[in-house]
Computed example of a mutant assay.
Amino acid sequence: MRFVIVLLFVIFQSNAQVALDTVPNSRYFEDQFYLGLSYNFILNHPEGSNQRNLSYGLQGGIIKDIPLNRKGTKAIGIGAGLALNSYYSNLVADISGDDITYSINDDITRSKLETHLLEFPLEFRWRNSTAEEYKFWRIYGGIKAAYILGARSKYDLDDVNEGFNNTDLTKFQYGLTLSFGYNTFNLHAYYALTELFNGNALVNGETLQYRPLRIGLIFYIL
């Protein structure tokens, strides 16, 4: 709720600034679709745990551009999108009835946690673009809030293949974002400020404190 209030405040303040700065034919918008591909690092592993295979992330959505000055080089971006993130490791999640248990198994063939999220990026945008120039340098930094729509844990061990909907995750998540680049191709990073699991997930008596770090490419499309 606090995030929604802050978001509305930013929108109203930005629109007020735009109204003050408006000059006929000088203002333009960078309304954009975005697509991203990332490698997902897992920070804060418990003892004996490590990443395996290729942990990847996909994201896509649209961002509304709100210019803050006459030149359009500074703006606020507010958007919404969807994301899929997978995390492979030797951490095995299993379920019995309503109880989810966790263990570390180095003999596991594959163990994956997959999340599906509804995301809400909020960016402060700097770029050296003009109303006529569509190839430009950009630096976009901000915060991204997300709500986990669903999460699934799965593992393969010998002839056993198990999967289930995992409810031990923190539903509302947020983190810092930074995008930097030229034209369509840009480097992108996301650092989570919330832990992936809620306090119910334990392994060897230790609370799981996984925190994602995602680094990859993001493509902005007008």
Rank of each mutant, 00 (worst) to 15 (best):
R2A: 12
R2K: 13
I5M: 11
V6Y: 09
F9N: 12
V10S: 03
S14R: 03
A19R: 11
L20S: 11
T22R: 13
V23Y: 00
P24F: 00
S26P: 00
E30K: 13
D31T: 07
L35V: 11
I42V: 11
N44F: 03
N44I: 03
P46L: 01
G48M: 03
S49H: 01
R52W: 00
L54H: 06
Y56S: 05
Q59D: 12
G61F: 06
K64V: 14
L68M: 10
R70V: 14
R70N: 11
K71A: 13
T73E: 12
G77Y: 01
I78L: 13
A80E: 10
G81W: 06
S89T: 13
V92W: 04
S96W: 14
G97M: 12
G97W: 13
D99P: 07
D107I: 01
I108E: 00
S111A: 02
S111C: 00
T115P: 08
H116K: 08
L117H: 08
P121W: 00
N128F: 01
T130A: 03
A131V: 07
E132F: 12
Y134H: 06
A146E: 13
Y147R: 14
I148F: 11
R152A: 06
L157C: 03
L157S: 05
N161L: 07
E162Q: 14
D168R: 04
L169E: 10
K171M: 09
K171N: 14
Y174M: 14
G175V: 08
L176V: 12
S179W: 02
F180A: 15
Y182P: 04
T184L: 12
F185C: 08
A189R: 02
L196W: 11
L196G: 10
N200A: 09
N204V: 07
E206H: 07
Q209R: 15
Y210R: 09
R211P: 06
R214D: 11
R214K: 15
G216S: 11
L217H: 02
